[in-house]
C-alpha cells in the first residue's frame, strides 16, 4: 500500500468535507444575519462597530474559503484562509471560556443554542489540523473510480460526523447546565 495514496485520499476528503462545513456555517450565519451581529458583539473581544463589521464580513468570507477549497487551483489558499478564520474564532472562544463567560451563544450554526466550552476549542483545533493536512496532501493527476468513491464517501462521512459531534456537545450542555447539581 502506498502511503502517498492514503495521504492524498484523506487530504482530498478533508478538503471537500471542510468546504461543506464552511458553506453550512455561512448559510446558518446568513439566515439570521441581524441576530448574528449581536452574537459576535456578545463575545466582547472587539469594539461594537468592529463586531458589527465582522458579522457582515465573516459569513461571506466563509463562503470564499469554501469555494477556494473546492477548486483544486486555489485549495491551498482556501486552507490557509480557513485556518486563519478558525484561529480567530478559537482565540475569541478561548478568551471567553477563560473569562468564564460560557453561557453566551457560540454562533456556530448547525446546532442551535450551542454554548461555549473547552470542547469547542478542541473541536476547532482538530478542524485546523484537518485543514493543515489538506494543505500538505500530495497532488495526483489521474484517479480511478474506487479512489473517487472512497474520497466522496469519506468527505460526506466527515461532514456528517462534524454535525453529529456538534449536536452531541450541545445536548451535553443542555443536560449539564452550569449551577445545578444532582442529589446523592
Amino acid at each position: 500500500m502506498d502511503s502517498q495514496v492514503l495521504l492524498f485520499m484523506v487530504g482530498e476528503a478533508l478538503r471537500l468535507g471542510l468546504a461543506a462545513v464552511f458553506v453550512l456555517a455561512a448559510y446558518h450565519a446568513m439566515r439570521v444575519w441581524t441576530l448574528f451581529g449581536g452574537i459576535v458583539e456578545q463575545y466582547r473581544v472587539a469594539p461594537r462597530w468592529l463586531a458589527r463589521l465582522a458579522a457582515r464580513i465573516l459569513p461571506p468570507l466563509e463562503l470564499v474559503v469554501a469555494v477556494c477549497l473546492v477548486l483544486p487551483a486555489t485549495s491551498r489558499v482556501g486552507a490557509t484562509l480557513g485556518m486563519g478564520l478558525l484561529a480567530l474564532f478559537t482565540v475569541a472562544i478561548a478568551i471567553n471560556v477563560a473569562r468564564g463567560r460560557v453561557s453566551i451563544d457560540c454562533g456556530c450554526g448547525g446546532a442551535n443554542g450551542q454554548k461555549l466550552s473547552r470542547a469547542l476549542v478542541v473541536r476547532n483545533l482538530i478542524m485546523m489540523l484537518g485543514l493543515a493536512l489538506a494543505w500538505a496532501a500530495p497532488d495526483r493527476g489521474f484517479i480511478d473510480a474506487a479512489t473517487a468513491i472512497g474520497i466522496m464517501g469519506l468527505a460526506v462521512t466527515l461532514t456528517v460526523l462534524y454535525f453529529a459531534a456538534n449536536q452531541l456537545m450541545t445536548n451535553f450542555q443542555a443536560s449539564h447546565p452550569p449551577g445545578t447539581r444532582t442529589l446523592p
Binding site: 466522496m152 464517501g153 456528517v160 460526523l161 453529529a164
Partner: peptide
Amino acid sequence: VWIGLIGLLLAVL
C-alpha cells in the same frame, strides 16, 4: 459499505 456507513451516520445525527 459507504452507503451503509453514511446512512448510519445520518441516523446518529
